[in-house]
């Protein structure tokens, strides 16, 4: 289907501009949809639905703001066709970005997720181990271990949890490291026993 003549386009545009003729918008669809879809479909990578949606969105946008079209710059059909091509490109880019996000998200889930029965077993086992650890360790050591497992690396924070007396920075670091190594050894032994 071909685009209408320039005079027909202009007459239709003037009807649309008035916004007081309900049928003008329907006529815009009747006149422009098929030719625009035809142009969009000439791109082999584009599906029929994508072409339909892009053409439809562009016409709806034009009908909402017909004053944005400036007749002295180009024909209405050129304006709409260019807008539809841009719209189709935007839709394609959004789709690619969405697919990439979903793929990346899927990858993370695949790596981290465990089978439902496995995760239940892990929870039961972890609870059992925590109970055993609480019995094997003093309360002070449990607090320090909690901090270490949460990723705390500050010497002063660990020293505070270890109840170490004030001392020089060098001594404090050595003392914290000594206590940390002791706890790791306890954990290591505990792991072997289990």
């Amino acid at each position: 289907m071909r685009f209408p003549s320039q005079a027909e386009e202009q007459a239709l545009h003037e009807r649309v501009l008035k916004k007081n003729e309900s049928l003008a918008s329907e006529d815009v669809f009747r006149v422009f949809m098929d030719p625009i879809i035809g142009v969009l479909r000439s791109n082999p990578g584009r599906t029929k639905d994508e072409a339909h949606d892009a053409a439809c969105d562009v016409l709806l946008e034009y009908l909402e703001h017909p004053e944005r079209y400036q007749a002295h710059r180009s024909r209405l059909s050129t304006y709409l066709m260019r807008a539809a091509a841009m719209q189709a490109l935007d839709m394609y880019r959004s789709q690619v970005a969405r697919e990439r996000r979903e793929r990346e998200f899927g990858g993370v889930i695949e790596l981290r997720a465990t089978a439902p029965n496995e995760s239940l077993e892990i929870i039961v086992e972890a609870r059992h181990l925590v109970g055993r650890l609480e019995q094997a360790m003093q309360e002070k050591d449990q607090a320090v271990l909690g901090l270490i497992l949460q990723g705390e690396r500050s010497t002063h924070a660990l020293a505070k949890a270890m109840n170490l007396p004030p001392q020089s920075e060098k001594d404090l670091r050595r003392e914290v490291k000594r206590n940390r190594d002791r706890l790791m050894k306890i954990l290591g032994r505990f792991g072997k026993e289990e």
Partner: peptide
Amino acid sequence: PDWLERAALR
């Protein structure tokens, strides 16, 4: 046209 229903929805 085959785009009619889709356009009406949109």
